[in-house]
């Protein structure tokens, strides 16, 4: 990079980026209609991921772009479309008092976080050197992956279970008669149309990129969450173009794919507990175990995210009783 963070050009870029972040955040919460707010939110997410790149946190930038902007954006667009379909009207604007209270609360939280950050003692390196010292024992070269899977495996394990619980919540919103059927409404796309052609062309690239991002997580920015999201997006593209029909949610392979990641992670954790520490990997095979956990998590994350976007079961499966 020719314009480092210290230079004038770098400073100008960062100031513009910060200003745009504030403007899009404001547009997302203060916009006049829901759809405009969602669009502003997606733009905000992409700008935030640029900001993470500027801070050198490529792993976070990837996650923000794929999950924060991309997947959450699709979920929100779907929610807006659903509201329109069931004829919901946009709520009347909040009373000024309510707005003022909400703004005060938001400013309070932001201020408290800013104070906490500013109160950190200068020149303290944090836990970085600690991670660097123990990196070899983790079996991977990317410190972020080492923290996520090995040093702080708890957090990642619970995240993957939270994701599963969210999907159970979405499925619980289905009607009794649709339970166990196909998720979401039927997709309408012209066979041979632009969407169908695009959805035939892109997966060959998307699948390679998705698997590469998961594998690269061992030594470079990447990992199960980012790669899994890319794979989910590829599947959703094919589903929205009507090229593949999503499976009925009651089918065993679907359930197995959803549970694989948390189950493998938890199982290895229990094995570690028998050897002394829950979620501890023996040093000699840590690298292999990280790859096993990442692969299993990728399958589950991709399946869970894709089914989250498709929505609760809403159609009977073609074979009759599931």
């Amino acid at each position: 990079m020719t314009s480092g963070v210290g230079s004038v050009a770098g400073l100008a870029f960062d100031l513009a980026l910060g200003g745009l972040l504030l403007a899009t955040a404001l547009a997302a919460v203060a916009g006049r209609n829901l759809f405009g707010g969602v669009v502003a939110f997606v733009v905000y997410g992409l700008l935030a991921s640029l900001a993470w790149v500027r801070l050198g946190a490529i792993d976070v930038a990837l996650a923000e772009a794929a999950i924060g902007a991309g997947l959450t954006g699709v979920l929100l667009v779907g929610a807006v479309a659903r509201l329109a379909r069931i004829g919901a009207v946009e709520p009347a604007p909040t009373a000024p008092v309510g707005k003022a209270l909400a703004a005060l609360g938001a400013v309070g939280v932001a201020g408290a976080i800013a104070l906490a950050v500013l109160a950190l003692p200068e020149g303290r390196p944090g836990l970085g050197p600690e991670v660097a010292r123990n990196l070899e024992a983790s079996g991977v070269e990317n410190p972020v992956t080492a923290v996520l899977i090995v040093f702080r495996g708890y957090d990642t394990l619970i995240e993957s279970i939270v994701l599963l619980a969210a999907l159970v919540g979405v499925w619980a919103a289905s009607l009794e008669r649709d339970w166990g059927g196909l998720p979401g409404l039927r997709q309408h796309a012209r066979p041979g149309g632009v969407m169908a052609t695009f959805a035939r062309l892109v997966p060959s690239i998307g699948i390679v990129v998705g698997i590469y991002v998961v594998h690269a997580g061992a030594y470079a920015p990447g990992g199960a969450f980012q790669g899994g999201t890319i794979l989910a997006a590829v599947y959703l593209l094919a589903a929205m173009a009507g090229l593949v029909e999503p499976p009925a949610v009651s089918r065993l392979p679907v359930r197995l794919a959803l549970a694989l990641g948390p189950a493998v992670f938890l199982g290895l954790g229990v094995v570690g507990a028998l050897g002394g520490t829950f979620l501890a990997f023996p040093e000699a095979v840590a690298g292999t175990l990280v790859l096993v956990v990442e692969t299993a998590l990728t399958v589950s994350i991709a399946a869970t995210l894709a089914l989250l976007v498709l929505g609760p079961p809403a159609r009977p499966s073609p074979g009759g009783a599931p």
Partner: peptide, 16 residues
């Protein structure tokens, strides 16, 4: 190339 592909497709879909 990918950006062109995506933008071209999205433009067609929005226009339609």
């Amino acid at each position: 190339v990918l950006a062109m592909l995506a933008a071209g497709t999205a433009a067609q879909l929005v226009a339609r």
